[in-house]
Every structure is written in structure tokens, then in C-alpha cells.
Design a protein around this nucleic acid. Structure first.
Lengths: 213, 213
DNA sequence: TAGATTGTTAATCGATTAACAATC
DNA sequence: TAGATTGTTAATCGATTAACAATC
């Protein structure tokens, strides 16, 4: 039952709305108008109203929006009212940092397992999770049924493991590799984090700033 | 000498072009047409030609583009022909992983220092860098003149340290915090990496996929 | 030369902003 | 009620795609 497709631009703004509304709530705000929120977030009031109206009528004319209620609604839209079981593939430096650094529960996930090929890493503890050998992937997934995975392995390895993970029932990937999952697996949900590209973009910014002086 | 402003959409595609051209070069490609590249990258040939023409005429009618030459040109545009000295602020789990995981040299930077407040972390080694106490920031910057910084500290701390870093001559931030640097410091270059928002977006994708079944 | 492919202009598409009637 | 602010339509702006003359 697809509603008339929400644009990607809108979707990318939702987590930020959710964060700001959380801050407002914590600071005792009960109501807020689109204009006031627009000033805090650096957007236009028009855009904010358009964005919210993609999902329904959350405000009240003459009043504005109820902060807690709006936040709750956006949380529902984002699927933060449940926790999808998730596994980490690749528990090296980066994988470990990501697994321990983020609050998965407040972002719609629960990290229930971690895997690596390296015998030096297998057995390591990440919070209350123990890193398992990748050979145990199938039996683990059969039993625990995770549907999301974090990919923190080299590109080459990702190409090889992606099929395997999809066969194990993984439907969503948080992809830190440069392997383009969407091409081979158009039916899964992919969120790419290209740290290298991000750093390169910073280089561009610095470079072009200097030229404009 | 600002050329007629390159749009953000184009800029965000440049690192990916650079990557693909590097792969092509490694695979022995000498020339490539916009059509062939478009098929490999999942873009339109039109967009590719438009993008490249923002910066000059890199191709040749009837022939296409010379892979190495095009890659070199894009590298120049991205500022990858030099290395900007960069420091890491916050050498916890995430900061350490980022510092050790990325190839800074090929992305226009050189990591020359790292700082933390935590005495347990100060003195730790990251490659050939030793983590210094944050109190040494000013003297270090005075001597080594870094102009870019990675922010891997809590939001609260970022609010406090941003001014200090700008005073020390930092002009570009790779920002892993949720603190909005652009608001207080409109004159610096900021590249945000919001891992939490990225994970939340994945939750949305999974959630909306399920609803559409 | 003929074929291929660019550089570039024009057309389309989508996203943002502005405006305002509806209504709390 | 009068003032405020939404929901929504219309106008604008920007980015993508299509088309084609220029030219290698």
C-alpha cells in the first residue's frame, strides 16, 4: 500500500527533525510553529509544512505543532517504535567503533551479533556481544533471524559476502564499503556511508575556498 | 575568482567519478565515452557530460575521454594534488578507527596530530602519531599550522572547542558530532557525517519497504 | 570522408518557496 | 471574535534529461 512516494530529499530531513524535536522536548517546549522551527533549523517554514504534510496533518491551525506528539509521529514514520535485529560483518577498527559508539535502540535496531574472518578478532567482546567466526553465520541467522547487517569489510569481501547475507535473510544493509550493493541486489534496502568520499568532498571545499580568496 | 558556482549536487558526485576512473585506469582502460561510463555508474550520459563541463572541456568529440587525464583533472579539482595538514580532536573509539582506517594522503590530507582530554587516552599511538593532551593544542597549532580538523567528541564538547580550533587557524572541519558548526562559524568549510541519522534513515527504508508489501 | 561523441542549448522534471484560503 | 498558523495550491527555482550542431 504505497502512499504517493515520499521523495528522498524529504526522507533525509526526517532524522534531523526527530533530533531537533527531541531537544525541544527536553527543553520543555510543548508547542512550536513551523516558523519558529524553521529559524532553529535553518530551513523555510514552507518546507517544514510541506514535509510534514507528506505524512498527514500533524498540526493545528492557529496553534502550530505539539512537540511531543509530532516527535512521536515522526518516530513512527521512521520505524523507531520497534527494533530490527542487526548483525555486524567485520569487527575491525571501524566496525567495533560503530558498534560501540551508536545508540542502536533509539534508531530502530538491536545489535545481536558480530562476525569476522580474522581469528585474532573472533572471540572479542563488544559490549555484551562476542565476535563469532563468519563460518557460524548461517546457523546464527537461522536461529536468531536478523534482517539487517552492517558491512564493515573490504570491498572485495563485500562482493563475496553480499549474496550469502541475502540468502541468510538480510533485507537491509548499512554499507561502509564502496561495493555497490544496489546493483546486484535491487530488492534490499541500502544506506551507504562513504567516509572516503566524504573526506574527499572536504578537500574540494577547502580547495575551492582558497581559490576564491 | 569564483567561477559561476558549482552546484552541490555536482560536487557530491566528483569523488565517485574519481573512484570509478581510478578503477578503470587500474583495469587498463585508456579511453571511455560518457555513454559507457554512464552504464557503469548508473547515471545518464547527459549528466556526466554536464558535470564535467562545469570545469572545462576534458573530452574530445568522436573519441570520448582519456581516462588517466580525466582522473588527473578531477583530482586537481578535488585538491588531491596536495596534502592539507589535519588534526584529530577526540581519539576515542570512533576517532581512532577513522584515523587508522582511511587513506588520508589520497584524499588531500595528512594527519599530523591527535588530541584528547582523557588521561587514559593521551599518550596512545595511532600509527606514527601520539595522542596529545588537548591543553597542548595551541602550541602544537602554532608550530605545525594544521588547517583542518576531525571532530570526534561529544556535541557539548564540540560547542566549546569549535571557537578554540578556529582561533588556532582551523578552516575545515570533518564533523562527526551533531553540533551545527556552520551556524556559529559561517566562514569555515564543514563536512558533516551524521552516522546516527544515517542509521535512522536505514530504519525508515526497512520500515517503508515492509509497509509496501 | 563517415561515424562517433562531445559541448551546449532547450525541454522536462522535481523540489523549494511563496501565497492564501481554511480553520483553530 | 480576532489573530495566528496550518494545509495546500500556485509560482519559482534548480537540476536532470533530451536533442543536436560542432568537430574530432
Amino acid at each position: 500500500m504505497a502512499k504517493n512516494a515520499i521523495s528522498n530529499s524529504v526522507i533525509r530531513r526526517l532524522p534531523r527533525y526527530y533530533r531537533f524535536l527531541g531537544d525541544l522536548e527536553a527543553n520543555g517546549y510543548v508547542r512550536i510553529s513551523s516558523r519558529e522551527l524553521s529559524e532553529k533549523m535553518g530551513l523555510t517554514a514552507s518546507q517544514i509544512r510541506q514535509d510534514f504534510n507528506c505524512f498527514g496533518e500533524f498540526g493545528q491551525q492557529g496553534y502550530g505543532y505539539n512537540v511531543s506528539e509530532l516527535r512521536r509521529q515522526i518516530g513512527m514514520i521512521l520505524g523507531l517504535d520497534k527494533q530490527t535485529p542487526m548483525i555486524l560483518i567485520g569487527a575491525g577498527n571501524l566496525g567495533t567503533a560503530i558498534a560501540t559508539h551508536l545508540d542502536f535502540h533509539n534508531r530502530g535496531f538491536e545489535l545481536i551479533g558480530a562476525f569476522d574472518v580474522n581469528p585474532d578478532i573472533v572471540g572479542k567482546h563488544l559490549g555484551d556481544i562476542t565476535v563469532l567466526d563468519i563460518s557460524e553465520l548461517e546457523s546464527f541467522c537461522h536461529e536468531k533471524k536478523p534482517t539487517a547487517a552492517i558491512l564493515c569489510i573490504p570491498k572485495q569481501a563485500a562482493e563475496n559476502e553480499a549474496d550469502r547475507l541475502v540468502k541468510c535473510g538480510i533485507q537491509a544493509f548499512w554499507n561502509f564499503t564502496h561495493y555497490d550493493l544496489k546493483i546486484a541486489h535491487s530488492d534490499v534496502v541500502v544506506e551507504n556511508v562513504h567516509l572516503g568520499d566524504s573526506l574527499t568532498t572536504l578537500s574540494y571545499g577547502l580547495n575551492s575556498m582558497e581559490k576564491n580568496k
